[in-house]
Amino acid sequence: MINHLRTLVEATGPSGSEEDVVQLVVNAVRPHADTLDVDAFGNVVVVRRAAHDDARRCIISAHMDEVGFRVYKIGADGFLRLEKLGGFDDRILLAQRVWIRTDSGERLLGIIGSKSAHLLGDNDRSSIVPYAHLYVDIGARSREEVISMGVAIGDPVGFVGSLTELGHQTGRYTAHALDDRAGCAVLLTLLERYEDTPPPVTLILVFSVQEEIGLRGVQALARHLQSDVALALDMTAADDTPEFSSPHLQLGAGPTIKIMDSSTQAHPAIRRGLLAAAEKRGVPVQREVLKGIGTDAGALQYLGQGVPTGAVSVVNRYTHSPVEVLDSRDLVGAVSLLEGFLQDLGNLELGFTSLDEKPSA
């Protein structure tokens, strides 16, 4: 799983420009898929069939795109201006290394410039530079030189980085784009578990695009995919660092089971099924209530006439930054949780409530 993640985070794939990630995913899933499709949006849809045609169907979606930018303007002075893709904290953007990916597929190194410390005034030290005022230095002296390098308006821009372990044998790793390449690595590992034996239900794995700019990839799929159950697999924000006095979600305490976020109220049957699968197998989990986040589950819940939907997340520090951090134990726990849920899904009661029971007073 870590090897999958290491490979995936090396690619530059902001929303709408996920081509390199798509190719990596397709190469990884092809040996294990019964069917494989890349749709017009760029979503990769992989089906691994159960042994029986009447088995239930479960969709699990993880997104391939990362937050990033596009080249908005090429100045006469050779500096690039950027437009955002996804949500950023502008405070973290100064002095970051970025890749600019040209139409030829070549990546050029650039730096988001900042004033030298010796030239800062009092106002500079106490203010945040809005992203619209930022510029990227690729070493060019003029617009013509930029164009000669193959850079064009609209080219995708993403953070530079590679997967690196923090400290020594901590099992905690940092990289950009862990959100949600880590979810993709979990799905690849889950699929490999069924290399020799069919899954207990028909498994539809979606590696989606454009999640960071409004769940757009999965919205397109929701119009025609059919399933009995849908899950999103994504990252969620840890609040276990010194800034917070009472953490809700902690690194290394297990994957989270979504209760609610801004896009989804998890279906009670899915919550119950995930919690039961975790308890049965001794997988530590955390309950997630986080209003300031959304996942592909927000679109998947509208499959057909509506489908029981939930989400599993991996806790992530410093989200939407070049230095996101996760704990590999949470990745392992996510695989175990999903595998257990799929094993139990055939017998899981999927009704919103039982009509045989009297409502509580």
Rank of each mutant, 00 (worst) to 15 (best):
H4P: 02
T7D: 11
T7M: 08
T12A: 14
G16D: 00
E19W: 11
D20N: 07
D20S: 12
V25A: 04
A28G: 01
A28R: 13
V29C: 07
V38E: 01
R48L: 13
R56Y: 14
R56A: 09
R57V: 15
G68H: 15
F69H: 14
F79Y: 11
R81K: 10
L82N: 01
G86Q: 03
L93V: 12
L93P: 10
A95S: 13
R97A: 13
R97E: 08
V98C: 04
S116Q: 09
I128G: 01
P130I: 06
L134I: 07
V136K: 05
D137E: 06
S142F: 04
V146F: 10
V146C: 09
I147N: 08
G161Q: 14
G161E: 12
S162K: 15
L190D: 03
E195D: 13
P200M: 00
S208N: 02
S208C: 00
E211D: 07
A222V: 02
T236K: 10
D240V: 07
F244E: 13
P247V: 05
Q250M: 15
A253V: 03
A253D: 07
P255T: 08
P255Q: 02
I257Q: 08
I259S: 08
L275V: 11
V283G: 07
E288W: 00
V315N: 10
S321L: 02
L326I: 15
G333L: 01
F352Q: 11
T353P: 00
S354W: 15
A361Y: 05
